[in-house]
Amino acid sequence: MRIKSSYAVAGGIVLVVAVYIIAKPLLSHDAKGGQAAAAPVAASNAPPLVKIADTPEAAHPYSVALRGRTEATRTVSVRAETSGVVAQTPIMQGTFVRGGTVLCRLAVDARQASLDMARANLKSKQLQMQASASLAAKGFRSPTQVLADQANLDSASASVRQAEVALNQVNIRAPFAGVFDHRDAEVGAYLGPGQSCGSVIELDPLLVVGDLPETEASRVQVGAAATAKLVSGEVITGRVRFVARDADPTTRTYRVEIAVPNPGSRVRSGLSADIQIAAGVGPAHQTITSALVLDSAGRQGVRTVLADNTVAFTPVSVLEETPQGIWISGLHGQARIIVSGQSYVSEGQRVRVSAR
C-alpha cells in the first residue's frame, strides 16, 4: 500500500520536532556545564582566603614549667656510737621529735661502774695533789714531784670525762628537730658502732625538687618565686634556693631545689608536683590554641601574614594557657596571626586577608 506524499511530509516534520524537543535540554545542559567548569578554573587562580587576628605585643610574666616531687630537707640515719643491747625504744616511728630526743637507749652494762671508779680515782688524785702542794710550800717536796702529781690529777680527770661520754653514748639521740620516720632496731637487738637505730627527716622547710632542661637552666635564678601544685590539688609556694651548675651526665638536666614553709610537717615527702618558676617579664602575644601549627621541621609556631600579604612561619614557645587563649613568645611587635586557614597555606605564599 502506498503512503501519500502529504502523509510522508507530515511524518517527517513530526519526527524532526520530536528530535529537537529531546535534544534541546541536553544541549543546554552541556553549555551550562562548560560554563560551570570554567568558573572554578578562573577561581583557582585567585590567592587563598585566610582569617587573621591583629595581635599587639604585651609584657607578660615568663615562667619555667617542669615536673618534680617533694623531698625532705635533711634525711639522717641515726647510728650507735658504741656497742650494746637495745634496752628501750621510747619514741614511736612517725612521731615529731625535737633535737636531742632519745630515740633508742642501750643497756648501761658496766659503764656506770666505770664512771664511779674513775670518779673515785679522781678524788684520790685531788687529795694527793693537795698534800703535795702543802708539802712543797714547806720545802718538803720538789717541784718535779708536784708536777708529777698534777699530771696524775689531770689524767684522772680525763678518765672521768671519758667514762661520762661512754655512759652518755647509750642514748642515741635525734640530731635535729624532725620526724622519726623509721625505726631500725627493736628492744633486745644488739647494735655495734655505726649500726642504725632509725632515720629522722626534716620537713620544715620542705623541698620541692625538679630537673631543669638545658634550654631552661639559664632562666632560673636563686631566690626566684615558685609554686608547686601537688597531686592532691593543693598549691604551695616558696623560693628557689639552689640551681645546680653541673648537669646530670645521663639526662643532661640540672637539679633545682625550692624551699617551701611547711609548718607542722603537714605536707609529706615524695609527692609528685607540677612546678612553675618565675623567670621575669618579657614580650608576648595572646592568641587561640588552634593557631599553633608545625612546620616541615616539626617546630611548633604560628603562621603570620606580612605587609605584602605573603605567609611567614615563626617558631614560638607557649608561656601560659588561659580560658581566653594562650600566651606565646617568639614574635615581635604587632603580629598578623592567621587564625583560620593556617593549615592550608605555606611560607612565602600570597594570600587574601579577612580580619576575624
Rank of each mutant, 00 (worst) to 15 (best):
I3F: 12
I3P: 03
I3W: 11
S5W: 10
S6G: 07
A10M: 15
G11M: 14
I13V: 15
A18W: 05
V19C: 12
Y20N: 09
Y20F: 14
A23V: 13
P25A: 08
S28V: 11
S28A: 14
G33T: 15
G34A: 15
G34W: 12
P40F: 09
A42S: 12
S44H: 07
N45D: 12
K51H: 14
K51N: 14
T55N: 06
E57H: 05
S63I: 08
V64C: 08
R67I: 10
R69G: 10
E71D: 12
A72E: 05
T73Q: 15
T75E: 14
V76S: 10
V76N: 04
I91H: 04
M92R: 15
Q93N: 10
Q93I: 05
T95V: 14
G100P: 01
T101P: 04
L106D: 02
V108F: 06
D109F: 04
D109W: 03
A113K: 11
A118D: 06
R119H: 07
R119M: 13
L122N: 13
K125F: 06
Q126H: 09
Q126V: 13
S132I: 09
T144I: 12
V146D: 08
A148P: 03
D149T: 13
L153S: 09
A158W: 04
S159P: 04
R161M: 10
A163T: 02
A166T: 10
N168V: 05
A177R: 06
F180N: 02
A185Y: 00
G188M: 07
A189H: 14
G194W: 05
G198V: 04
S199Y: 01
S199Q: 12
V200M: 05
L203H: 01
P205I: 00
L206C: 01
T215Q: 09
R219D: 13
G223S: 11
A224T: 08
T227I: 09
A228V: 10
V231W: 07
G233L: 09
I236Y: 01
R239V: 13
R239L: 07
F242P: 04
A247Y: 00
D248Y: 03
T250M: 10
T250H: 07
R252Y: 06
R255H: 12
E257N: 10
E257I: 09
I258L: 04
I258A: 01
G264Y: 01
R266C: 04
L271N: 06
L271G: 03
A273C: 06
A278V: 11
A279K: 00
V281E: 11
T287Y: 04
T289E: 14
V293P: 00
D295T: 11
D308I: 12
T310L: 06
T310G: 05
F313R: 00
F313G: 00
P315A: 09
G330D: 03
A335S: 15
I338N: 00
Q342Y: 01
G348W: 03
G348V: 08
V351F: 04
V353D: 09
R356C: 05
